[in-house]
C-alpha cells in the first residue's frame, strides 16, 4: 500500500528550520558575558515560543470545532474579549487596588472570567449552526470591534490621564513580554498540550463536523465545550503576554495546512506550532539584528496575515 510520507518530511523540515532559527536567535550578534546573554535571551525565547504555540494551537482547535478554515478565535473576537475581561476586572476593583495584587493572581482571575465569557460568546455566535459563514464572520468581527471599543471606553473612564499607560499595557510588544507571567503561562500551555495529545484522533473526527462526529459516537456537546475551555486558556495566555494579534493564528494554520498536505491533527498541530515559532523567532531576529528595529513585528504580522485572510475569502467565494 503506497503511504504518503509528505507530512513526516514536512514536519522534519520544519523542525530543523525551527531549531536552526532558535540556535541563531540565541547566539547571533552576542557580545560579552554568556552568563548574562543566555538567560536573558532564553527568557525572551521562551516567551516567543509560548506565544507562538498558544496562538497556533488555539487557532487550529477553533477551526476544528467550527469545521472551518477561515474562522479563528482572534477574528471572532475572543482576543478582544480577554482585553474586555481584564478591563472589567480593573474597573470592578479599581486600578490602585489591582496594583497591590500579584500579577499572576490577576491573570488567573482574568483567565477564569475569560473561560466563562468565551463559552457564552461561542454559544451565541453559533446558536444557529455554522451554515452561513460570512454572516457569522461579520458578526464575530463586529463583536470584536464592540469589545475593543467598550474596553477603550472603560479605560478612558477609569483614568483619563493614564489612558495611554493602560493601552500600552494592553498592546505590549513581542519585545517586552511580561516575565512574571512566564512561569504560569508555560505551565498552562504545557498542561493543555499534554491534555491534547491523547485526544488527537477525536479531534480528527470532530473536524468532520457535527453530524458526522455524532454519527461516529462523539459526545459532541461535551467534547466541543472541553476543547473550547482549552482554547480560552490558550487565548488568555497569548493575549496576556502580547495583547491581541488578529491574523497571526490564521497565518500559521493556513501555512501548516499547505505544508503538511494532511488534515490529521497529529501533523497539523505540530506543524502550525513550528511555523508559528519560526515566524516569531525568525521575524524578531531579522528585525532586531538586521534592521535594528524591533517594535514592528506585530504590525508586519497583521499586514501579511490580513492579505492571507482576504485571499482565503476570495478563493472561497470562487468555489
Amino acid at each position: 500500500m503506497p503511504r504518503n510520507r509528505r507530512p513526516q518530511l514536512a514536519l522534519a523540515a520544519l523542525g530543523l528550520l525551527t531549531a536552526g532559527l532558535i540556535l541563531a536567535f540565541m547566539t547571533v550578534g552576542a557580545k560579552g558575558n554568556w552568563d548574562f546573554i543566555l538567560p536573558f535571551r532564553g527568557r525572551k525565547l521562551l516567551g516567543l515560543v509560548i506565544i507562538a504555540h498558544a496562538v497556533a494551537c488555539s487557532t487550529v482547535l477553533f477551526q476544528t470545532v467550527t469545521s472551518n478554515r477561515i474562522l479563528t478565535p482572534a477574528i471572532m473576537g475572543f482576543d478582544s474579549l480577554f482585553v474586555l475581561c481584564a478591563t472589567l476586572l480593573v474597573t470592578a476593583f479599581g486600578s490602585t487596588a489591582m496594583a497591590g495584587f500579584d500579577p499572576r493572581l490577576i491573570f488567573a482571575a482574568n483567565a477564569v472570567l475569560m473561560v466563562a465569557a468565551s463559552m457564552a460568546l461561542y454559544r451565541w455566535l453559533f446558536r444557529d449552526g455554522t451554515e452561513d459563514l460570512h454572516r457569522i464572520l461579520l458578526i464575530g468581527v463586529v463583536v470584536g470591534i464592540l469589545f475593543r471599543s467598550l474596553a477603550e471606553f472603560l479605560q478612558r473612564m477609569l483614568d483619563p490621564n493614564e489612558f495611554m499607560v493602560l493601552t500600552d499595557m494592553m498592546f505590549a510588544s513581542f519585545n517586552a513580554v511580561p516575565l512574571d507571567l512566564l512561569g504560569v503561562a508555560s505551565l498552562l500551555v504545557g498542561l493543555v498540550t499534554l491534555w491534547l495529545i491523547p485526544r488527537l484522533p477525536r479531534l480528527d473526527v470532530m473536524a468532520l463536523g457535527r453530524p458526522v462526529g455524532i454519527n461516529l459516537g462523539l459526545d459532541w456537546r461535551r467534547e466541543t465545550m472541553a476543547v473550547l475551555v482549552a482554547i480560552s486558556v490558550l487565548v488568555s495566555v497569548s493575549v496576556a503576554l502580547v495583547g491581541p494579534i488578529l491574523f497571526f493564528g490564521l497565518m500559521a494554520a493556513a501555512l501548516a495546512h499547505l505544508a503538511v498536505g494532511s488534515s490529521a491533527h497529529r501533523h497539523v498541530l505540530p506543524a502550525a506550532s513550528l511555523i508559528a515559532v519560526s515566524l516569531l523567532v525568525g521575524g524578531q531576529m531579522l528585525l532586531e539584528r538586521v534592521f535594528a528595529f524591533d517594535t514592528a513585528l506585530r504590525i508586519l504580522v497583521e499586514f501579511a496575515g490580513g492579505i492571507i485572510f482576504i485571499t482565503l475569502l476570495v478563493a472561497r467565494g470562487r468555489r
Binding site: 469545521s67 473536524a207 494532511s262
Partner: peptide, 12 residues
C-alpha cells in the same frame, strides 16, 4: 449510522 444528503467536508 446515518448519512446526510449534504456531505461537505473542510478536511481534505
Amino acid at each position: 449510522a446515518m448519512l446526510r444528503q449534504d456531505n461537505h467536508l473542510t478536511a481534505r
